[in-house]
């Protein structure tokens, strides 16, 4: 089935002008080096002026996999992000993602499966019930959050495409739209962003395709409209704004592994005993704390060892980091 994707809405010229002016003002403030001064105006100058609408997602199923740890605030989750497609600082995704148009959206399914082709966002998710999954998220930079995702078990979706016995891995790709994603205009990573899982990891019930946070559709800076969430792996595995999913026989190339093979492995399982070459992974900073909160110990597989450790029995995790 091939679905023709209509032209994206283009913003009115007046909107473009005000956005440019706003960006200029920001970069002027930045270039003056008055980091503090611009932050002082926080809430006015720093705020995204026209946050794109998020839709309410309706009734959600609860899940046994949700943690009962305290959720981070909506502000923390939507204003402290790593999404290099919109810039490399933590504020960039919030500030620079206003031009991104997630809808309409389509995903190309390819490779070792009986059913392949282009499918709309609605085709992908419509026949599934949405679940709330409150997960811990551990970044490779040693900070963490608790995020109430809304999503669908990835395995339930993948099965509909009838992967063949050759499907040993699943590859994912982020959309490449430098006109809407300013970070992609610099070759800081080898765009488009690519990630991959083994088929067992992809089919694991903890792995979800997320479409929202806090019972609302995903904001652009969190990976609208569709993203992966693999809670026992470092955050960079949970690829955002996915528009391609492939079934492969060999391990797919992944962006961070290509960028730094001795720092970022294919598995990237959260593991307090395997340090990043430049920093320790033994402890993590929980976002949203005060100036005087101590770090907390990082747990094996981010605390999901009971569910996922068996996936890796017999694998040397020191070498396959």
């Amino acid at each position: 089935m091939l679905i023709k994707v209509p032209q994206k809405n283009t913003p009115a010229p007046s909107e473009i002008a005000s956005e440019t002016e706003y960006q200029n003002r920001r970069s002027f403030i930045r270039s003056m080096g008055f980091v503090g001064a611009s932050a002082l105006l926080g809430g006015t100058a720093c705020a995204q002026e026209n946050p794109p609408e998020t839709r309410s997602l309706g009734p959600l199923l609860k899940s046994q996999y949700s943690t009962n740890q305290t959720e981070n605030s909506y502000t923390d989750i939507t204003q402290y992000n790593n999404f290099y497609e919109f810039g490399t600082s933590k504020e960039d995704p919030y500030e620079n993602s206003g031009q991104f148009q997630p809808m309409p959206w389509s995903v190309r399914i390819e490779g070792a499966a009986d059913i392949t082709g282009d499918f709309s966002y609605e085709d992908i998710i419509q026949s599934h019930a949405l679940e709330e999954r409150i997960y811990r998220m551990r970044c490779v930079e040693a900070w963490s959050m608790v995020i109430p995702w809304v999503g669908i078990p990835l395995g339930d979706i993948l099965k509909r495409f009838k992967p063949t016995s050759n499907a040993k891995y699943v590859s994912f790709e982020t959309v490449y739209r430098p006109s809407e994603m300013p970070g992609q205009r610099r070759p800081i990573l080898d765009w488009p962003y690519r990630e991959g899982l083994t088929i067992e990891e992809a089919m694991h019930p903890l792995t979800i395709l997320a479409v929202g946070i806090f019972d609302k559709s995903l904001p652009n800076q969190n990976g609208a409209p569709l993203r992966l969430v693999v809670p026992w792996k470092y955050g960079f595995k949970s690829i955002k704004s996915i528009n391609k999913i492939g079934f492969t026989e060999t391990p797919p190339a992944t962006t961070w592994n290509d960028a730094g093979p001795n720092e970022y492995g294919f598995y990237a399982n959260v593991n307090p005993e395997v340090d990043h070459p430049r920093w320790s992974q033994a402890r993590e900073r929980r976002i949203g704390g005060s100036l005087f909160d101590a770090k907390q110990p990082t747990l094996m597989f981010n605390g999901y060892a009971d569910e996922v450790a068996s996936l890796y029995s017999g694998l040397d995790l020191q070498r396959n980091f």
Partner: peptide
């Protein structure tokens, strides 16, 4: 300016990761 942000004066904040903000600044 940093002290103002620590004290939250004029609505200034240190953001979601205050310790990193202070240290990097």
């Amino acid at each position: 300016l940093l002290c103002l942000r620590v004290l939250g004066i004029y609505g200034a904040t240190l953001g979601p990761n205050p310790i990193e903000t202070v240290q990097d600044y």
